[in-house]
Amino acid sequence: MSLFNQLAYYFLLAEMATFLILLLPLNFIPIRARKTAMEWAGLFLANETIVWLARIVLLAITGVFADTLVRLVKLDSDLHARSHAEGHYDSPMAELQFKAKLFYSQRNMYLSLSALFMTLVLYRRVKDLYLVLLLQFDNITTKASVSALEKQLAAVRLAPAAAAEHVSAAAPVDEADILASVLDPSGAEGLRKRS
């Protein structure tokens, strides 16, 4: 294997290992810790050196893919030229060498194309995991704010009941008056006079 083919192979192995790790459910880790870890990893991956290194590796893998396509086209044209001219190989060893070149070229094409495809899959998986994590975090914060509002509402409901006990019996409050004042958009005109 050449250096670039080895690079594509090890890059594909690293991508597959990362993808398998990302498939694990991490619900046992608190959401705040997961969110902090994802944000830290995002800052690390946004580093200019890391970005340029990833671009160079992806460019090298794309070059390996293009090179193997060119080799496969050349091998295919050799195969067609040989089949039209002679119909057979000079020796069994020549046929074996041709088949070995064809196998290695196809293998390198599959490795490099799989590495490029896994790059897209990993990008989408990490983005989806981060969006789900943000939704879960928003859900928790919303639940916390709703429970705080419910406590405030309960306190407000208890406050008029406590205040009503202290009001004298000479000035009773009618619920219809309160509803009419709240529902009337014209303001104070809708208030009924008390007798």
Rank of each mutant, 00 (worst) to 15 (best):
Q136L: 06
D174P: 02
T49P: 00
M38I: 02
A164P: 03
L53M: 10
K143Q: 13
Q6R: 07
V57S: 01
A54V: 12
L72D: 01
S147K: 03
Y123I: 04
K143T: 05
V57F: 08
F98M: 05
A54G: 10
Y10W: 03
F4C: 04
V121P: 02
T68N: 15
V51A: 10
S105I: 02
T68E: 15
E150R: 07
A144R: 06
L45K: 08
F11L: 03
L113K: 14
T62E: 11
R55I: 01
D67E: 15
T68W: 07
T49A: 08
L179K: 11
L111E: 12
L79Y: 15
A170W: 00
D174C: 07
D78T: 03
L23S: 14
L122G: 03
I21W: 15
A17L: 14
H166Q: 15
D90M: 11
R192Q: 12
E150F: 02
T142G: 01
M109E: 13
R125W: 10
V121Y: 10
R34I: 03
V167Y: 10
D174Y: 11
D184F: 10
A94Y: 12
R32G: 08
T141P: 03
V126M: 13
R125K: 13
F44W: 12
F117H: 11
F137H: 10
I31N: 08
F11V: 00
I61M: 01
P185E: 01
V167L: 15
P172N: 03
T36E: 14
A60V: 07
L116E: 06
Y123E: 05
F44Q: 07
A164K: 03
A170R: 12
E175T: 05
T141H: 14
R34Y: 11
F103W: 13
M16N: 09
K151H: 04
H88G: 02
W40M: 04
G42P: 12
V70Y: 13
G42F: 10
D67N: 12
G190S: 06
A170Q: 12
L24G: 04
E189L: 09
K99I: 02
F4A: 08
D184E: 05
I31S: 06
L53G: 05
L133I: 03
A33C: 08
R55N: 09
R125A: 04
L75A: 00
Q136I: 01
T62H: 07
M118C: 09
G42L: 01
I21N: 14
M93S: 13
K143L: 13
A180Q: 13
A17T: 12
L191C: 06
L111K: 03
A161T: 05
L179Y: 09
H166M: 14
K143S: 09
T18I: 04
T119W: 11
S114V: 00
A85W: 11
E165P: 08
F11I: 01
F65E: 05
A162E: 09
L59H: 13
F19C: 00
A170D: 14
A14V: 06
L58M: 10
L13H: 06
L12K: 03
F117V: 09
Q136V: 07
L102A: 03
V146R: 04
I178M: 04
E189Y: 03
L179M: 10
I31M: 09
